[in-house]
Protein backbone atom coordinates (compact mmCIF):
# COMPACT_ATOMS: atom_id res chain seq x y z
CA UNK A 1 0.00 0.00 0.00
CA UNK A 2 2.56 2.56 1.06
CA UNK A 3 6.15 2.91 2.10
CA UNK A 4 7.11 5.12 5.03
CA UNK A 5 7.23 8.78 4.16
CA UNK A 6 10.53 9.99 5.50
CA UNK A 7 11.88 13.11 3.93
CA UNK A 8 9.41 15.92 3.22
CA UNK A 9 11.68 17.38 0.57
CA UNK A 10 11.26 14.20 -1.46
CA UNK A 11 7.46 14.31 -1.30
CA UNK A 12 5.45 14.43 -4.45
CA UNK A 13 2.94 17.25 -4.71
CA UNK A 14 0.17 14.77 -4.00
CA UNK A 15 1.89 13.52 -0.87
CA UNK A 16 2.46 17.03 0.38
CA UNK A 17 -1.10 18.01 -0.30
CA UNK A 18 -2.42 14.97 1.54
CA UNK A 19 -0.20 15.69 4.52
CA UNK A 20 -1.12 19.34 4.61
CA UNK A 21 -4.82 18.62 4.37
CA UNK A 22 -4.68 16.02 7.13
CA UNK A 23 -2.63 18.17 9.47
CA UNK A 24 -4.86 21.19 8.91
CA UNK A 25 -7.99 19.28 9.78
CA UNK A 26 -6.33 17.98 12.94
CA UNK A 27 -4.71 21.23 14.00
CA UNK A 28 -7.65 23.46 13.11
CA UNK A 29 -10.08 21.32 15.12
CA UNK A 30 -7.89 21.50 18.20
CA UNK A 31 -7.09 25.16 17.77
CA UNK A 32 -10.64 26.38 17.36
CA UNK A 33 -12.06 24.13 20.07
CA UNK A 34 -9.43 25.39 22.51
CA UNK A 35 -10.36 28.92 21.56
CA UNK A 36 -13.97 28.20 22.44
CA UNK A 37 -13.09 26.39 25.66
CA UNK A 38 -11.20 29.41 26.94
CA UNK A 39 -14.51 31.28 26.91
CA UNK A 40 -15.34 29.29 30.03
CA UNK A 41 -12.38 30.61 31.96
CA UNK A 42 -13.68 32.69 34.86
CA UNK A 43 -17.20 31.57 33.86
CA UNK A 44 -17.49 27.90 34.74
CA UNK A 45 -19.98 26.63 37.34
CA UNK A 46 -17.38 26.42 40.12
CA UNK A 47 -13.78 27.38 40.69
CA UNK A 48 -12.72 23.74 40.44
CA UNK A 49 -14.53 23.12 37.15
CA UNK A 50 -13.05 26.36 35.84
CA UNK A 51 -9.56 25.00 36.46
CA UNK A 52 -10.39 21.68 34.84
CA UNK A 53 -11.81 23.12 31.65
CA UNK A 54 -8.96 25.62 31.39
CA UNK A 55 -6.62 22.67 31.53
CA UNK A 56 -8.43 20.94 28.69
CA UNK A 57 -8.26 24.16 26.68
CA UNK A 58 -4.50 24.34 27.16
CA UNK A 59 -4.12 20.69 26.23
CA UNK A 60 -6.05 21.18 22.98
CA UNK A 61 -4.18 24.35 22.14
CA UNK A 62 -0.90 22.60 22.79
CA UNK A 63 -2.01 19.79 20.49
CA UNK A 64 -2.87 22.34 17.82
CA UNK A 65 0.64 23.67 18.02
CA UNK A 66 2.05 20.17 17.84
CA UNK A 67 0.07 19.45 14.68
CA UNK A 68 0.91 22.78 13.13
CA UNK A 69 4.56 22.14 13.88
CA UNK A 70 4.43 19.10 11.61
CA UNK A 71 4.09 21.55 8.76
CA UNK A 72 7.13 23.54 9.89
CA UNK A 73 9.23 20.97 8.05
CA UNK A 74 7.39 22.03 4.94
CA UNK A 75 8.15 25.70 5.58
CA UNK A 76 4.64 26.57 6.71
CA UNK A 77 4.76 28.43 10.01
CA UNK A 78 2.30 29.61 12.63
CA UNK A 79 1.92 32.97 10.97
CA UNK A 80 0.78 31.33 7.74
CA UNK A 81 -1.37 28.82 9.57
CA UNK A 82 -3.16 31.10 12.00
CA UNK A 83 -2.58 34.80 11.74
CA UNK A 84 -2.41 35.27 8.00
CA UNK A 85 -4.61 32.47 6.76
CA UNK A 86 -7.87 33.34 5.10
CA UNK A 87 -10.50 32.21 7.66
CA UNK A 88 -12.35 30.53 4.80
CA UNK A 89 -9.29 28.32 4.33
CA UNK A 90 -9.61 26.75 7.79
CA UNK A 91 -10.66 23.12 7.74
CA UNK A 92 -12.07 22.52 11.22
CA UNK A 93 -15.43 20.90 11.78
CA UNK A 94 -18.25 23.35 12.47
CA UNK A 95 -18.78 21.54 15.80
CA UNK A 96 -15.80 23.34 17.30
CA UNK A 97 -16.53 26.84 16.04
CA UNK A 98 -20.06 27.36 17.39
CA UNK A 99 -20.18 29.91 20.20
CA UNK A 100 -21.40 28.94 23.64
CA UNK A 101 -24.55 30.63 24.88
CA UNK A 102 -23.77 32.14 28.29
CA UNK A 103 -24.15 29.54 31.00
CA UNK A 104 -24.74 26.65 28.61
CA UNK A 105 -22.51 24.21 30.44
CA UNK A 106 -24.55 21.36 28.95
CA UNK A 107 -23.27 22.40 25.53
CA UNK A 108 -19.69 22.58 26.83
CA UNK A 109 -19.60 19.09 28.27
CA UNK A 110 -21.63 17.48 25.51
CA UNK A 111 -19.52 19.09 22.80
CA UNK A 112 -16.45 17.93 24.62
CA UNK A 113 -17.80 14.39 24.77
CA UNK A 114 -18.75 14.28 21.08
CA UNK A 115 -15.39 15.69 20.10
CA UNK A 116 -13.20 13.70 22.47
CA UNK A 117 -14.83 10.41 21.52
CA UNK A 118 -13.98 11.16 17.89
CA UNK A 119 -10.54 12.40 18.83
CA UNK A 120 -9.76 9.16 20.58
CA UNK A 121 -10.65 7.13 17.49
CA UNK A 122 -8.76 9.27 15.06
CA UNK A 123 -5.66 9.27 17.24
CA UNK A 124 -5.83 5.49 17.25
CA UNK A 125 -5.90 5.64 13.47
CA UNK A 126 -2.79 7.85 13.46
CA UNK A 127 -0.72 5.69 15.76
CA UNK A 128 0.77 3.79 12.83
CA UNK A 129 0.90 6.71 10.45
CA UNK A 130 3.43 6.29 7.66
CA UNK A 131 4.71 9.76 8.44
CA UNK A 132 6.78 9.43 11.63
CA UNK A 133 6.28 12.99 12.98
CA UNK A 134 2.55 12.23 13.11
CA UNK A 135 2.90 8.81 14.72
CA UNK A 136 5.39 10.21 17.23
CA UNK A 137 2.91 12.77 18.49
CA UNK A 138 0.03 10.43 19.09
CA UNK A 139 1.08 8.86 22.40
CA UNK A 140 1.51 12.08 24.31
CA UNK A 141 -1.62 13.64 22.91
CA UNK A 142 -3.71 10.57 23.55
CA UNK A 143 -2.90 10.28 27.23
CA UNK A 144 -4.15 13.83 27.76
CA UNK A 145 -7.30 13.11 25.79
CA UNK A 146 -8.20 10.29 28.15
CA UNK A 147 -8.77 12.78 30.93
CA UNK A 148 -10.92 14.93 28.66
CA UNK A 149 -13.18 12.05 27.71
CA UNK A 150 -13.57 10.90 31.31
CA UNK A 151 -14.22 14.46 32.43
CA UNK A 152 -16.95 14.90 29.81
CA UNK A 153 -18.60 11.55 30.62
CA UNK A 154 -18.60 12.33 34.34
CA UNK A 155 -20.33 15.64 33.79
CA UNK A 156 -22.86 14.19 31.35
CA UNK A 157 -23.83 11.48 33.80
CA UNK A 158 -24.35 14.01 36.56
CA UNK A 159 -26.24 16.60 34.53
CA UNK A 160 -28.48 13.94 33.03
CA UNK A 161 -29.64 13.02 36.54
CA UNK A 162 -31.67 16.22 36.84
CA UNK A 163 -34.64 17.24 34.74
CA UNK A 164 -33.27 20.66 33.81
CA UNK A 165 -29.89 19.17 33.09
CA UNK A 166 -31.34 16.53 30.81
CA UNK A 167 -33.51 19.08 28.98
CA UNK A 168 -30.53 21.28 28.41
CA UNK A 169 -28.46 18.34 27.22
CA UNK A 170 -31.20 17.35 24.79
CA UNK A 171 -31.33 20.90 23.38
CA UNK A 172 -27.58 20.91 23.00
CA UNK A 173 -27.61 17.47 21.39
CA UNK A 174 -30.24 18.47 18.83
CA UNK A 175 -28.18 21.51 17.94
CA UNK A 176 -24.70 19.99 18.03
CA UNK A 177 -25.18 16.53 16.61
CA UNK A 178 -25.38 17.48 12.91
CA UNK A 179 -22.24 19.56 13.37
CA UNK A 180 -20.48 16.69 15.10
CA UNK A 181 -21.06 14.57 12.01
CA UNK A 182 -18.92 16.97 10.00
CA UNK A 183 -15.95 15.65 11.96
CA UNK A 184 -16.04 12.77 9.48
CA UNK A 185 -16.40 14.79 6.29
CA UNK A 186 -13.50 14.86 3.90
CA UNK A 187 -11.66 18.15 3.68
CA UNK A 188 -11.20 20.15 0.54
CA UNK A 189 -7.47 20.62 -0.02
CA UNK A 190 -6.22 24.14 0.64
CA UNK A 191 -7.16 26.60 -2.09
CA UNK A 192 -3.67 27.87 -2.49
CA UNK A 193 -1.38 25.29 -1.14
CA UNK A 194 1.32 27.11 0.77
CA UNK A 195 3.72 24.36 -0.17
CA UNK A 196 5.71 25.20 -3.26
CA UNK A 197 5.04 22.65 -5.95
CA UNK A 198 8.41 21.27 -6.86
CA UNK A 199 7.24 18.87 -9.51
CA UNK A 200 5.32 19.80 -12.56
CA UNK A 201 4.05 16.33 -13.24
CA UNK A 202 2.15 13.73 -11.31
CA UNK A 203 -0.05 16.14 -9.43
CA UNK A 204 -2.32 17.58 -12.02
CA UNK A 205 -5.23 15.29 -11.40
CA UNK A 206 -6.16 16.93 -8.15
CA UNK A 207 -5.25 20.53 -8.90
CA UNK A 208 -8.08 22.76 -7.87
CA UNK A 209 -10.35 23.45 -10.80
CA UNK A 210 -10.58 27.18 -11.12
CA UNK A 211 -13.54 27.06 -13.46
CA UNK A 212 -16.19 28.71 -11.31
CA UNK A 213 -19.14 27.07 -12.98
CA UNK A 214 -17.99 23.70 -11.74
CA UNK A 215 -16.52 24.92 -8.44
CA UNK A 216 -18.63 22.90 -6.01
CA UNK A 217 -18.33 19.72 -7.93
CA UNK A 218 -14.57 19.96 -8.27
CA UNK A 219 -14.19 20.85 -4.59
CA UNK A 220 -16.04 17.73 -3.59
CA UNK A 221 -14.01 15.66 -6.03
CA UNK A 222 -10.77 17.16 -4.82
CA UNK A 223 -11.79 16.49 -1.20
CA UNK A 224 -12.60 12.88 -1.99
CA UNK A 225 -9.37 12.48 -3.91
CA UNK A 226 -7.16 13.93 -1.21
CA UNK A 227 -8.96 11.92 1.47
CA UNK A 228 -8.26 8.82 -0.60
CA UNK A 229 -4.62 9.80 -0.72
CA UNK A 230 -4.46 10.32 3.06
CA UNK A 231 -5.42 6.70 3.55
CA UNK A 232 -3.57 5.30 0.51
CA UNK A 233 -0.32 6.94 1.57
CA UNK A 234 -0.85 5.51 5.05
CA UNK A 235 -0.94 8.90 6.75
CA UNK A 236 -4.06 7.69 8.54
CA UNK A 237 -4.89 3.98 8.76
CA UNK A 238 -8.69 4.22 8.81
CA UNK A 239 -11.13 5.89 6.46
CA UNK A 240 -13.46 8.64 7.62
CA UNK A 241 -16.42 6.33 7.00
CA UNK A 242 -14.93 3.75 9.32
CA UNK A 243 -14.20 6.35 11.98
CA UNK A 244 -17.69 7.81 11.68
CA UNK A 245 -19.38 4.44 12.00
CA UNK A 246 -17.29 3.47 14.98
CA UNK A 247 -17.93 6.80 16.63
CA UNK A 248 -21.66 6.42 16.18
CA UNK A 249 -21.56 2.93 17.61
CA UNK A 250 -19.97 4.39 20.76
CA UNK A 251 -21.73 7.71 21.29
CA UNK A 252 -25.28 6.75 20.32
CA UNK A 253 -25.68 3.97 22.93
CA UNK A 254 -23.97 6.05 25.59
CA UNK A 255 -26.18 9.09 25.01
CA UNK A 256 -29.26 6.87 24.88
CA UNK A 257 -28.23 5.36 28.20
CA UNK A 258 -28.59 8.88 29.63
CA UNK A 259 -32.18 9.01 28.32
CA UNK A 260 -31.21 11.34 25.52
CA UNK A 261 -32.74 11.16 22.09
CA UNK A 262 -30.04 11.10 19.43
CA UNK A 263 -31.21 12.90 16.29
CA UNK A 264 -30.12 10.25 13.82
CA UNK A 265 -32.24 8.68 11.14
CA UNK A 266 -32.01 4.98 11.96
CA UNK A 267 -33.78 4.06 8.71
CA UNK A 268 -30.56 4.80 6.88
CA UNK A 269 -28.67 2.14 8.71
CA UNK A 270 -27.10 -0.12 6.14
CA UNK A 271 -26.11 -3.76 5.91
CA UNK A 272 -23.47 -4.82 8.36
CA UNK A 273 -23.16 -1.42 10.00
CA UNK A 274 -25.18 -0.20 12.90
CA UNK A 275 -25.04 3.46 12.03
CA UNK A 276 -23.81 5.62 9.19
CA UNK A 277 -23.33 9.32 8.53
CA UNK A 278 -25.67 10.40 5.76
CA UNK A 279 -25.79 13.58 3.72
CA UNK A 280 -29.28 14.37 5.01
CA UNK A 281 -28.12 14.59 8.60
CA UNK A 282 -25.36 17.13 7.88
CA UNK A 283 -25.66 20.87 8.51
CA UNK A 284 -25.46 23.50 5.75
CA UNK A 285 -21.90 24.46 6.62
CA UNK A 286 -19.46 21.61 6.87
CA UNK A 287 -16.34 23.42 7.94
CA UNK A 288 -14.16 20.82 6.26
CA UNK A 289 -14.91 22.35 2.86
CA UNK A 290 -14.16 25.90 3.99
CA UNK A 291 -17.80 26.85 4.53
CA UNK A 292 -18.29 28.09 8.07
CA UNK A 293 -20.92 29.68 10.24
CA UNK A 294 -20.71 33.45 10.77
CA UNK A 295 -19.53 32.84 14.32
CA UNK A 296 -16.22 31.55 13.01
CA UNK A 297 -15.46 34.71 11.09
CA UNK A 298 -16.19 36.83 14.17
CA UNK A 299 -14.02 34.57 16.27
CA UNK A 300 -11.18 34.77 13.76
CA UNK A 301 -11.45 38.53 13.71
CA UNK A 302 -11.18 38.67 17.50
CA UNK A 303 -8.29 36.26 17.81
CA UNK A 304 -6.22 38.10 15.20
CA UNK A 305 -7.09 41.53 16.61
CA UNK A 306 -3.82 42.19 18.42
CA UNK A 307 -1.70 40.82 15.59
CA UNK A 308 -3.32 43.29 13.22
CA UNK A 309 -3.49 46.17 15.71
CA UNK A 310 0.24 45.95 16.37
CA UNK A 311 1.01 45.30 12.70
CA UNK A 312 2.89 42.17 13.60
CA UNK A 313 4.47 40.03 10.96
CA UNK A 314 5.37 37.09 13.13
CA UNK A 315 3.86 34.99 15.92
CA UNK A 316 6.22 34.94 18.91
CA UNK A 317 7.18 31.53 20.18
CA UNK A 318 8.02 30.96 23.80
CA UNK A 319 8.95 27.34 23.25
CA UNK A 320 10.99 26.21 20.30
CA UNK A 321 10.26 22.86 18.71
CA UNK A 322 8.21 21.32 21.50
CA UNK A 323 8.44 17.55 21.86
CA UNK A 324 11.15 17.21 19.31
Amino acid sequence: MSSPLENPTDFSARERRALETLVKRLGDDEFVLAERYTEWQVRAPSLESDLALANNAQDELGHARLWYDVLADLDVDERDLVYERDPADFRHSTLVELPFAEGDWADAVLRSYLYDAAEDLRLEALEDSAYPPIADRVGKIRSEEEYHLEHARNWLERLAEGEEGRDRLQDALDRLFPHALTLFESATPPVETAIPTREASGSNEIERNTDETSGDRSDADAAAAVEGDIVDFGLRTATLEELGEEWLSIVVPFLESLDLDVPIDESTIGEGVEYAVTVESLPTQLGRDGTHTDAWFDLYDDLTHTYRELERSDAAKIREDPDR
Partner: peptide, 14 residues
Amino acid sequence: IRQAPSIDRKLAFS
Protein backbone atom coordinates in the same frame (compact mmCIF):
# COMPACT_ATOMS: atom_id res chain seq x y z
CA ILE B 1 -6.25 34.74 26.11
CA ARG B 2 -8.06 35.13 22.82
CA GLN B 3 -6.35 38.29 21.70
CA ALA B 4 -2.83 37.11 22.49
CA PRO B 5 -0.81 37.40 19.28
CA SER B 6 0.59 33.85 19.20
CA ILE B 7 -0.32 30.34 20.30
CA ASP B 8 2.35 30.25 22.98
CA ARG B 9 1.25 33.59 24.40
CA LYS B 10 -2.30 32.31 24.37
CA LEU B 11 -1.23 29.21 26.28
CA ALA B 12 0.67 31.22 28.84
CA PHE B 13 -2.22 33.61 29.31
CA SER B 14 -4.68 30.78 29.72
